Computed example of a mutant assay.
Amino acid sequence: MTCAAPEEGCALLLGRRGSPHGAAVPWHGQRIWPCLNTWPEPAERRRRFAIDPREQLLAQKWARQRGLAVLGAAHSHPSGQAVPSPTDCALTLAPALMLILAADGDLAAWWLDDTDRQPQPLPWRMDA
């Protein structure tokens, strides 16, 4: 994922659910599907993002044809840290993965559970 500064960039996270490895989050991300930020008020796109529903449907169809699913979303904080904001948590349909790119280039993964809604940091790696 690249930064779309000064606006927030966004993408969908595609992968497989139900990893047999017994991880705390039994999902395995495999693809990042870049999306346009279509937040309705362009001036607000510096701190808000929205993914076009048509892009979501296209990504879901593409993923399903390959045995994958949409696991969550990635976005940037062009003037902040790689930590989910209260708005990020409130607008995310849990359970979900979150990947956030900060202004300083830090990239962090988070798990949002559907029980306590408190984001949990995840250890992660990006395979080539």
Rank of each mutant, 00 (worst) to 15 (best):
M98K: 06
R125D: 01
P34F: 05
A82S: 09
A74S: 11
D106K: 10
W62C: 09
S19Y: 08
H75W: 03
P53M: 03
R16P: 01
P20Q: 03
R31E: 10
V83D: 09
P86R: 00
S79H: 15
H28T: 12
C10G: 04
A4Q: 12
A24T: 14
P121E: 00
R64G: 07
P95H: 11
D52M: 01
A94T: 01
T115N: 12
P20C: 03
E55K: 00
H28F: 13
Q30K: 09
W39T: 00
L91W: 04
P42V: 02
P95A: 08
G72K: 10
T115L: 12
P95Q: 13
G105M: 09
S19R: 05
A94R: 12
D127F: 02
E8C: 06
L91D: 13
R125E: 07
L99G: 13
Q65K: 02
L107Y: 01
L107W: 00
S85Y: 06
C10H: 10
C10Y: 07
L97A: 14
L112I: 02
P53F: 03
P20N: 02
A74K: 02
V25W: 15
W27M: 04
E44Y: 07
A59V: 05
A50Y: 06
S85F: 00
S76G: 09
T2L: 06
W110N: 11
W111Y: 15
R46L: 05
R54H: 11
T38L: 04
L68N: 02
L36A: 15
A4D: 15
L68H: 02
L107C: 09
E55Q: 15
T92E: 10
E44G: 03
A74R: 11
